[in-house]
Each structure stands twice: as C-alpha cells, then as structure tokens.
Computed example of a mutant assay.
Amino acid sequence: MCGLRQLCVLLSGLLPAAVLAAVSPSQLAIVINTNDPDSRETGRYYRQQRHIPEQNIIEIALPVTAVVSEQVFNQQRQALYRQTPANVQFYALAWTQPYRVGCMSITSAITFGFDKAYCAKGCNATRRSAYYNFDGDAPYDSLGIRPSMLLAGSSPAQVEAMIDRGVKSDGSFPGGTAYLLSTTDKARNVRAWRYPVIRQRLSSRLKIQLLEADALKDKHDVLFYFTGRARVQAVQSNRFLPGAIADHLTSWGGVLFGKKQMSVLKWLDAGATGSYGTVIEPCAFTQKFPNPGIVIDRYTRGESLIEAYWKSVAWPGQGLFVGEPLASPFATRRQSE
C-alpha cells in the first residue's frame, strides 16, 4: 500500500478548478445491448439528455445475465471497436446486466480487453492501470484505452433519475461536504489512514468531515461519502447533491443483485450520481478501490465523473464503475454542448 509520503506527493500538485469540462459529448460513445429492451431506452434517453452525436451510438449483442463468458465478450468487444469513431475516448454502457466478464468487471473488460492479468486468484495483486492518476484528457489517443462506465440502476426510472442528476450537476459548483467515515469494521476500514492527509491537503477547496461512525445519518449536503462496511445503514436518510459520489469498501459491492453485501445500486437509489464496487473477491487491497483523495482532488478541479473516478483506482480489473460519466459539478460546458 502507498505510504503517507506517497499520498502527499499525489495530492501536492493541486490546481485551481478548470473553466470548461474536459470531456465533450462527441468524445463519448453510448453502447447499447440489442438483447435488452431497457438498454435501448436508456441509450435513447442518455443521448437526448447529453446530446451525444448519432454516429456515437453503437450496438452490440450480449446476453442479459449477470456474467458473460470470455468468448462471447471478446467477439462483441471486437465488434464494438470496429464501430467506434476514432475521436471517441470513453464509453457509456447502457445496461445493468451483464456487469461481469469471467474474472473481470464489465467496465474494466471493455476498457482493457479481457486479460487475466487484471484478475487475481486469492489475495494477490493485479495489473496496474496506466490511467491511474493520469494527467491527460484523451486516454484512447494517449494510452489506447477507452474507460467505460455503466449506466445502471435498480430500475429504468432510477437510471433516468441518475442521468438527470448528472446533467443537473454541471457547473453547479456545489457547497457540499466530503464525509470520510472511519468504521468499526477493521477489515474494511483500510482507507481510513489516508483521511487526515486528504483533509489537510484539500480542506481549502471544500468542507471535509472525518467521522468515527458506522453510518452517516440525516445530512443534507453530501457530495462525497466514503466508508468501509459490508452494508451501510441509513443511506436513504441523507440528501445527496447532484453529482455526488459514494462508495463502500467491501468484497461484493459490484455484484448488483443477489448478494448479502450491499450493492452499489443502493447508493444510486439514495441519490448518488456515481459509485464503485468489486465483482470478484478483491481482499482488502486499497489499490483495488478508489483513493478518495484523488477522486476529490480531480473532481473538484473540473474533471468529469468518469475521469476522476477511473483515475483514482490503481488496480481496477475487478472493480465496476457505475454512474453518469459526464457529470462535472466543478466545470461548465460550452454552449454548443
């Protein structure tokens, strides 16, 4: 794990907020699963709300199941890349299932291609992402990858509500709070050692509260909420601002349905705009989860949700990114967008 000195280095080069959002609608493609009627509707709605160019709407055919095989996935990813315009840097995946490909999450498999180097048998490291804390704004041009995010929800209506929150967040420069919770769950509280440095480095930019608690309750200004628990209580008692990011470090948060641990969809149901969870047992490697300091830093200086969130995870192969990719609360968009 990174030491305190390394974390300080990562947060030392802080810049003022950007004026314009880095990612434009023309740089993002919407991927529709033709086997899923809800995917078509989600894709249509997202294109309308975000003014995505028609040529950036791409169709593939995946089974509507939690897990897809490596063979089927590889065929469809090849079809996806053949159809993708050269200027596209990111993908929005317009479905809730599948969310896993073999031993990888669907978002990482789309981004990197299926590669077992991004998987782990037991408690082991996985391949590091070249996009981790990367300063460029064109990952395909620079690194040959297109980071992806799932437009997922517990229902089509919830997905549309999440999209609306992302759109509403743009240029809002919210006066919300980052809540960093240190819990009694020692196995899942492994990010808490970072919190004092994060507050020290970023508190001039927004309010940051460090709390020793297993749950946050009745707060009305939640912009960031990071914790470590298998299940998080009282999530619905809080008000999440448009563009809010929230996640809980646990083993199965990215298993969207059917696990005893809390699904990341619960955060979105409660009003968050983005979340993250693993689909395969990761063990308590902090590198397999978002680094809250990097997320907060990059998001609050104008990067979009997909940029700031993806850049915060060093080993993302087993992790699922869910949310509205273009949400940019600390940036404004050109009128043409």
Rank of each mutant, 00 (worst) to 15 (best):
Y91W: 03
A109P: 13
R82E: 03
C119V: 08
Q83G: 08
A86M: 06
S129L: 14
Q97L: 01
A117W: 04
V159Y: 01
S148T: 01
G144F: 07
Q83A: 08
C103M: 10
G136T: 14
T126G: 04
M162N: 14
D137A: 14
I163D: 09
Y118M: 13
Y118N: 05
Y131G: 03
Q158G: 05
A125W: 09
A130M: 12
T126Y: 05
T84R: 05
R100D: 08
P139Y: 04
G144Y: 15
F134V: 07
R146D: 02
N124F: 04
T126A: 15
L93E: 06
Q97F: 01
S108R: 08
S142A: 15
Y131T: 04
A109Y: 12
M162A: 00
A86C: 09
T96R: 01
L151W: 10
S154W: 05
D141A: 08
D115M: 06
S154T: 11
F112P: 02
A92E: 11
T111E: 02
G102M: 10
A94C: 12
S108P: 05
Q89K: 06
Q89I: 03
T96L: 12
F90I: 07
V101F: 11
N87L: 09
S148M: 06
F90W: 15
I163N: 00
A125N: 08
Y91G: 09
F112H: 01
P139R: 10
V159I: 14
G102W: 14
T84L: 03
A152N: 06
F90K: 04
T107Q: 04
